[in-house]
């Protein structure tokens, strides 16, 4: 087959919603786009453990602590599912780590914001995981098989994350005046960064059109963001919290909530590395990796020794 007919075959698989698997021919840009997206997603899970890890030792009860530990452990698992999906595209795990540690690969900007109070654990579960689910559910049908299968696992596990966050928010919002204020403050701080999680507006998102064509993405950034706003406004009513946006208004004609202008300068500034915690997050990650080197080396040496002993016996 010529490249042309390979391309036609690939396009026809995409058009017929037939999943692409690792050994199938794929256009180089499809491969690159997937590696970028999946590894960025994996990095987000791994870095995403840090803001919450900050509160494990200070969780207000044993129940909350056990739940938070389980959630953070899930995030490690999600990172691992995704890294192995990306590896099927021909990039090694070490290469991906290298890209993360040198800043060449990005992770979700939301994790560059600090977790100041316990209420942030609630807001992160409710909003950040809520936004992540909105993004991830359509990815269960993404065109690349290993990615889609990893996302099915992730989504199954993720819904507990959002519920536990909402439960924290609900408990706080029905608690003392101070607790209610903590919940509202966390909501105020996490709301806008959560909206930014869906990425730049469609008009300024150069990759969206091609990704939708390849069925990597099933919805655009703006479509998902609108969906998220619509459900969250209703949930905030249940919590009895005020929306941190004076422009939220039901639009009868559109059948959606209108919302205020997002500060995209802030978004790009955080992406470029100038968020409140960019340096702290990356430093913590690199420190863990470097200080764990001897453990990885020792395990390998031990495995080799054992193998040699077995051979000799």
């Amino acid at each position: 087959m010529s490249t042309n007919s390979f391309q036609e075959h690939f396009d026809s698989l995409i058009d017929r919603d037939i999943t692409i698997e690792p050994k199938d021919w794929m256009p180089e840009d499809y491969r690159k786009t997937l590696i970028r997206q999946i590894s960025q997603h994996a990095h987000s899970e791994i870095i995403g453990m840090l803001p919450e890890g900050n509160w494990i030792t200070r969780a207000p009860s044993l129940r909350r602590k056990a739940v938070l530990l389980a959630k953070v452990q899930d995030e490690a698992g999600h990172g691992l599912y995704l890294y192995s999906a990306a590896e099927t595209l021909g990039i090694s795990r070490d290469e991906m780590y290298q890209q993360l540690h040198t800043g060449k690969a990005k992770y979700s900007s939301i994790f560059n914001y600090p977790t100041l109070t316990w209420a942030d654990m609630g807001a992160i579960g409710w909003l950040v995981d809520g936004a992540a689910i909105m993004n991830q559910v359509p990815l269960c049908r993404t065109s690349y098989g290993p990615y889609a299968r990893a996302m099915v696992r992730v989504c199954k596990e993720e819904s507990f994350h959002q519920r536990q966050g909402f439960e924290i928010m609900l408990t706080l919002s029905k608690g003392t005046e101070v607790q209610r204020k903590l919940a509202q403050d966390a909501f105020n701080r996490w709301w806008w960064p959560s909206l930014m999680m869906f990425g730049p507006p469609d008009a300024e998102s150069p990759n969206t059109e091609q990704s939708v064509r390849w069925k990597i993405k099933r919805f655009t950034n703006d479509e998902l963001r609108q969906k998220f706003v619509d459900v969250t406004v209703e949930q905030a009513k249940v919590l009895g919290l005020d929306m941190p946006d004076a422009d939220i208004k039901w639009n009868e004609e559109r059948g959606h909530y209108d919302f205020g202008k997002i500060n995209w300068d802030e978004f790009w500034n955080v992406v470029k590395g100038n968020g409140p915690c960019n340096k702290q997050r990356l430093d913590a990650r690199k420190k863990a990796w470097e200080e764990g080197q001897w453990v990885r080396d020792a395990a390998m040496a031990h495995a080799e020794k054992r193998k040699a002993r077995k051979k000799a016996a």
């Binding site: 691992l80 599912y81 192995s84 999906a85 990885r296 495995a303």
Partner: peptide, 23 residues
């Protein structure tokens, strides 16, 4: 179920337990 990295088979089974059978 998926894949993972491990130094040897025993560690691979232990890691698989943590990564793929938490529930």
């Amino acid at each position: 179920a998926g894949s993972l990295h491990a130094a040897d088979a025993q560690m691979a089974i232990e890691n698989a337990r943590d990564v793929y059978t938490r529930r």
